[in-house]
Design a protein around this nucleic acid. Sequence first.
DNA 1: ATAGCAGTAGGCCCT
DNA 2: CTACTGCTAT
Length: 771
Amino acid sequence: MSDSTAPKPPHYLDELNDVQRQAAENTEGPVLVIAGPGSGKTRVLTYRIAHLIEKGVAPWEILALTFTNKSAREMKDRIAKVVGKKASNIWAGTFHSLFARILRVEAKHIGYPSNFTIYDTDDTKSLINQIIKEMNLDKKVYQANAIKNRISSAKSSLITPKLYAQNAELLTQDKQAKMPLVSKIYTAYVARCKKAGAMDFDDLLFRLFELLQNHPEVVRKYRQKFKYVLVDEFQDTNTLQYAIVKKLVMYPKSPRNICVVGDDAQSIYAFRGATIQNILDFERDFADYGIQTFKLEQNYRSTEHIVQAANAVISHNRRQIQKNIWSHKGVGQKIKIIREMDDTGEGRRVADTILEQKSRYHLMNQEIAILYRTNAQSRIFEEYLRKFNLAYRVYGGLSFYQRREVKDLVAYLRMVVNPNDEEAFRRSINQPKRGIGNTSIEKVVALANARGISLFEALKHVALPNRTRHSADGYLDMITKARAKADTANAYELAESIARKSGLSTMLSNDTSIEGMARLENFSALLDGIKSFVDEDTLIDTDTLPDKTLASYLQNIALLTDFDSNEEKNNTDVITLMSVHAAKGLEYKSVFVVGLEEKLFPSWMSMDSADGMDEERRLFYVAITRAEQFLTLSYCNTRYRYGKMVMNEPSRFLTEVPAGAVENTSYSRRSEKSEYDPLERQRAKVTGITPIRKRGTAKFTKPKMDPSKFKPNLPSEIEVGQQVMHLKFGEGRITKVDGGAGNRIATIHFSDLAQPEKRIMLKFAKLQVLD
DNA sequence: ATAGCAGTAGGCCCT
DNA sequence: CTACTGCTAT
C-alpha cells in the first residue's frame, strides 16, 4: 500500500479513502469498524490514534489493545511516523502484556507479590498433573490437557472455583466425561498458583477483572487514565476480555470513547473462547450512546480472482455481517490447484512451483508463504525447500523459550525473583543432577503441604540424609545469595553468575554432540538476550515495562512468542512456513495453502459441528486472503499421519472456490502417471532426503557451514582482527574484545546480518578461527 | 536413594 | 515420533 508517492507527505488523513477517513476522524463515542481483509484496518487505527494526539490527547491516555506484540509494535512505529517520539507513550500492547503491567503495580490489592511469576502452558500442565497425582487420580482418565481447557474456559467465562462447584451444568459435563473431580482440581489449582505467587495466561485477564470489580478506587484510576480505548481484532476477543474493556469504558457519565475493529469473517479463535457474539453484543451494549459503524469493504491487497474466490467461499457460512468486499487491482492471475498422489509429491510440487514462480515473476523468497493447518505438516516442505536450496523459516512449533536448556536457566532466574514459584523449583532443584531425586522431593512436598509453606522454604527444614542435605544446602545458598543481589545487580550479571554456579553452563559445555552444541548456542543466546535487555533496547518493547530488573525481564519473556523475537529474521530473504492461524494479519505476493483435504483442513476435530465447520471455513478464508497476486491450493490423495498411510478426500473448500477463478490446467489434466512414476520415486529414495529438523537445533534454514566440520577454538585463542566462523551467524570479524580474563566478550561484525554487530561471550559461544 | 537405561504406550491441531 | 515407567547398577 505505497501508492502515495508525493514528495511532501500530504496531510495524513488524505491518505485514506472516504470510509477509512470517517472511521479515523470520528473519535468521540462508541465506534465499530468492520474491516474486510486487506482493507487498511491498521492504517485506520494508526491514523485514528495519530489524529487523537494531534488534537491534543495525551499519548498515555490512549489504550490500544492488540493480539500480538508484533502488531502493537507495528502500530506504534507507524504512529511515530506521524506524531514523532511521543508515540512511545501510548499504552499499546497485547491484552496480556498491558494487563500484566497493571497487575504488577496493583498486585498488593489482590494479595499477589508484584514480582509474580507467569506460568506458561507447560507450567500449567505440569502443576495440574502434580495435583492429579497428589489426589491419587488416574491420569489416563484425568488428562491434564483436557482439564487445563476446562479451567481455562471457566476463567474466561468468569467462573471461579466456587461458582464452578455450584454449577450443575458443568458438573454434569464433568461426570459425563468421567471426571467428576475437575471442580476439586480447579480449586486446588487456583490455590496452588496463588501460593506460588504465579498467574497463568488466563489469570492475567481474570485477576485484572477481579481487581477492577472489587476495588472501586483502582477502577476509578484507570477509567480516568484511559480516555480513549481501542481494540484491534475484536472478533477474537473472549467474553472476559470484552468484560474488562466494558469495565473501563462503561460507567455513569463516561464519554464511551471506545473503538473496536474487527471482521467476523476472520474469527478463528473460537476454540480458545473467542466469540463473534462480542461484536453483536457491542452493538447492543452501546446502541443507546450513538454508536457509529463503518464498513471497510475495499480490498487493497489482492487481485480480483482471489477476492472473488474468498467471497464465494465465505458465503457458505451461515450467519455473517453483510458486506461486499471488492478490489480494483485487476483480475490478476487465476488460482492454481495442485493435486498429488501423496504428501511427498505435494512437497516436491510446491517447491517446484515456487522455483517456477520465482524465475517467471522474479519473486523474492520473502514474498512467498506456505500455509498449513497443522504445524506437523511443515516437515516435507522443509525437506524439498532445502533440497532446492531455497531459504526458509518455520514459525511456530517449539519456540525458543520452550527449549529445555532455555527453560532450565529461566527456572533458576524465576527462583531468584520469586522463591515460591513451585514449577521453577521442581525444574531447577535437580537440573543439573545434584542428587536430589524423587524421594527427597516427595519429602519436601509432604512437609510443605503439612506446614502450608513453599517448597523452597520446606527444603530448608526437611530431614534429609547427609549427602542430600549437603547438596540441598548448596542449592538454597545459591538462590539465597542471588536473591540478595536481585534488586541491585544488573540482570545480566546475575543470570550469568547463576548459569555458572548452577552448573548448567558446565553441563552444556561438556556435551560435545551436535545437539549439545546447539543447546549451548541457545543457552548463550538467552544470556545474550538478557544482555541486550540490559543495555540496548532492541530486544523488547521497553515502553510496556517499568524497569530493567530480572523480574521485568522474566515478565516480558513469559509473554513473548516465536513471532516476537529479536533476530535478524525479519530482514532476511526467506520463504515463510507457518500455520494459517499464525498468518493472520500478514500478506504475501504468493501464497500456497497446502493439505486441503477432508479431516485435515477442515480438521477432523471440527467436522462434527456446524459451528466448527464455519470456523474452519473462516480459517480457509483467512488463508486465501493473505495472497496478493498468486494463490496456489494443494492437496494429495494419501499422506502419512501418525506413522500410518491414510487416504483423503479433497477438501470441500476446494469445491467452494468458483471455477471461473481457477486455472483450468489444474484438476486432472496433468498426467498422474508422471507424478507417480516409480522411477521418480526411486530416484527420490536414492537421493536420500534426510530429515533436518532435530530437537534443539537452531531454527535457521541453512547452517553457515557443515556442523560436523566445525571445530571451535578455545576462548583464549580469540583475538581482535581475526576472521571467525559462528555456526548460526556465519563469518565475521572480531572488532573488539573486552571483559575480564574469565569473562571475555567479543564484539563481532557479521557482514551478512541485518544487524551485523553482535556481542558474544567467548566462554559460551563457539567460534572457529579462519585463516 | 538416585540415575541412567531401555522398552512401551499413548498421542499430534490452532494460542 | 516422545514422554513416562520400571528395572538395575551404583
